[in-house]
């Protein structure tokens, strides 16, 4: 199976346990994290994770779980295939 990467983005107000809760969902879904970066600018939290989604039919179920968590924490959490970022920022 060839590699297929997706980006999980988390944006919103900083609070305790964001990374733990997001990575828990990923672990429960057997998803490996390849890279992770985060910044906090004036209390505004952004985290980007590159994850391996090879062999998955669709990301709907995962997005649902992330939406749930996002609603609970007041954060925007999305998962989208990495190619869109590649296309827009690399020639």
């Amino acid at each position: 199976m060839t590699e297929r990467h997706a980006v999980v983005s988390v944006i919103g107000k900083d609070q305790v346990g964001i990374i733990a809760k997001v990575t828990n969902i990923l672990a429960d879904n057997q998803i490996n994290i390849l890279d992770i970066s985060q910044t906090i600018l004036q209390d505004f939290f952004t985290m980007m994770m590159i994850v391996d989604v090879a062999g998955r039919e669709d990301l709907d179920q995962l997005q649902d779980q992330l939406n749930h968590l996002g609603d609970d924490l007041g954060l925007k959490i999305n998962i989208q295939l990495e190619e869109i970022f590649q296309a827009m920022h690399r020639v």
Partner: peptide, 17 residues
């Protein structure tokens, strides 16, 4: 990371905001 953090933020900002 292949794509820089701020580049990903830019794409997400373009779409969401």
């Amino acid at each position: 990371m292949d794509i820089a953090h701020n580049e990903m933020i830019e794409t997400i900002r373009m779409i969401q905001m």
